[in-house]
Amino acid sequence: MDNQKTVIEISHMTKKYGKHRGVTDLSLTVEQGKVFGFLGPNGAGKSTTIRAMLGFIRFDSGRINLFGKDIRRHREEILAQVGYMPSEAMFYPAMKVREVIQLAAQVRGVDCGEEGEMLCERLQVDTEKKIRELSLGNRKKVSIVCAMQHSPRLFVFDEPTSGLDPLMQSTFFSLVREYVDQGATCMLSTHVLPEVRRYCDHVAIMKEGELQCVKAVTALTNAGARRIKWVRDGKREEFLYDRDLNELHRELAGHDITELLIEEPSLEEAFIEYYRT
């Protein structure tokens, strides 16, 4: 498996919605075989980026290549190798689950029978039910089957676990890991930070339409701010500190320090710090 192969390459992409901000000058790359977390507060531009990546919307400038091909010129060819799971997971209400899964496979022109059956079994999908009878969680499961049954080279998941029970969340991530181990790549847009910590290799943080950083998840907690806990002059204090530690040392001179703990912030704190700044 060639881990250096670039699957997603976004270069200086800008998308504006009239006068409103969309995404500004976004550049990022995702390598094959990685689980890439895509984070940011609501309205940060995550969905806009995903939609532009899949050719759902046009963008004003820049370039997006998936598998080395321009999405604007090779959309159909690219989407044949992509499994996308939208956050809403909506289907035609009068159709049976089996018919929806079949339709997705037929339009792709591939025989996904065996893989589809395996996925339905592991995710406990009742294929004889009508879509209108399903809860959000069950619709999500159908969406997972539709996104995975053709064993794509790239997965794009938009808040995939909302509505899924913990057991199904675990099954979902096991499946993702299995496909990624076989060479697939996964882009995961989520608000659930423990998911990012547990399953992602790298993470990109978006804020107000701009990319704040792209880092390995482990590096994110090792860089930047530190959590400081101390008892100074009999008073207990706890805060995040992102300046030079020598400065902190000088500040402590002349004070009575009875406790001092400097530790890495949690992933949650690191993200919140990025959101705030």
Binding site: F56, E76, I78, L79, V82, P86, E88, M90, P93, V107
Partner: peptide, 14 residues
């Protein structure tokens, strides 16, 4: 209207 466009257009069809 039925929010099915994301499903339809995520398939390889123009």
């Amino acid at each position: 209207d039925g929010h099915t466009s994301e499903f339809l257009f995520s398939l390889p069809v123009s």
